[in-house]
């Protein structure tokens, strides 16, 4: 089952591949090409923004797409306000709570399903069905039950986090090498010691991948929930600005949400690199 997904979700070896793929016999040539390689994406990004600015100023774009400079001005004006701070905090809070609750639940269930084959056999049709239901479809029911409260964000955020965490953890637990498991048993380690010293570390690269997938899901879900319902957060502000045709402010908040995603990914990558320094993907990078 799911071999395709599984391969795609495995901790990627791309780090080392990229590092090796870099050209470089001649040190100066290598410097030049890597500097160019680093500058190029910035160049294209800036060029695109300039094109956007010009097209918008030339009225080629409709008025719903304001010039970049106007968006930047709106952002600078917006950021110091109290309302923005409150919305940002609400979004981050829903994100963190959702990821934490869903993530922990996913790990616990994943370990259980991996350790007790019967449990997996009994439930895996159900799980395979549930995992593909987008978390936001539960929104109407939750709004009825909880109203437009942060609780809706917590619950749906958790629902977005639980599946990638559960399945990644499960793959990790079932993938622990037989020799390593034999080793733990031969040397008389008790079940909790085997869990602590063998299973959990062996599973951690999978959990790290799960965490990164889960984090992006949660950010999507939390923002979508806020846009659709009126649960407080950056999403509901985006919806409010959009429905009142205050476009520069709306885009400014889009930039903020995007920046949140980038920061989150950057942070998780750093954490992963530090915690998994022993893993084959990070060995070279670590030293």
């Amino acid at each position: 089952m799911n071999t395709g997904t599984r391969a795609a979700e495995l901790p990627a070896e791309t780090m080392t591949l990229e590092a090796e793929a870099r050209p470089g016999t001649d040190p100066t040539g290598r410097d030049r090409s890597s500097a160019a390689a680093r500058l190029l994406p910035w160049g294209t990004s800036i060029a695109l923004l300039v094109v956007w600015e010009l097209l918008s100023r030339a009225k080629v774009f409709p008025s719903e797409i304001p010039p970049v400079t106007e968006i930047a001005r709106a952002l600078i004006k917006l950021v110091p306000t109290h309302e923005f701070g409150a919305s940002l905090l609400a979004t981050i809070e829903q994100f963190v709570v959702g990821l934490l609750v869903g993530g922990v639940a996913g790990i616990v269930l994943g370990v259980l399903l991996g350790a007790v084959p019967l449990l997996y056999q009994l439930t895996h049709y159900l799980l395979d069905f549930l995992r593909f239901i987008p978390a936001v479809v539960y929104l109407p029911v939750l709004i009825l039950l909880l109203g437009s409260t942060p609780g809706v964000g917590y619950v749906l955020g958790a629902a977005g986090a639980i599946w990638p965490m559960l399945f990644q953890t499960y793959y990790g637990v079932t993938g622990v090498s037989a020799i390593l498991r034999d080793t733990g048993r031969v040397f008389g380690l008790r079940p909790h010691q085997r869990l602590l010293h063998i299973t959990l570390p062996a599973v951690s690269p999978f959990v790290a991948t799960g965490l990164r997938i889960a984090a992006s899901h949660v950010l999507v879900v939390v923002t979508a929930v806020q846009i659709i319902s009126s649960v407080a957060g950056l999403g509901s502000d985006i919806a409010a600005y959009a429905s009142n045709a205050v476009y520069p402010q709306m885009y400014a908040l889009l930039v903020v949400v995007g920046a949140l995603g980038v920061l989150m990914n950057f942070g998780l990558e750093r954490l992963e690199r530090r915690q998994l320094h022993w893993h084959t993907s990070y060995r070279e990078a670590g030293r």
Binding site: I179, L180, T183, V186, P201
Partner: peptide, 19 residues
Amino acid sequence: PPPEIACVFQDYSRSLMPW
């Protein structure tokens, strides 16, 4: 596995804990 017995396996790279 009794406490009197210890094992050395063929595949050292997978019997040692890399972490």
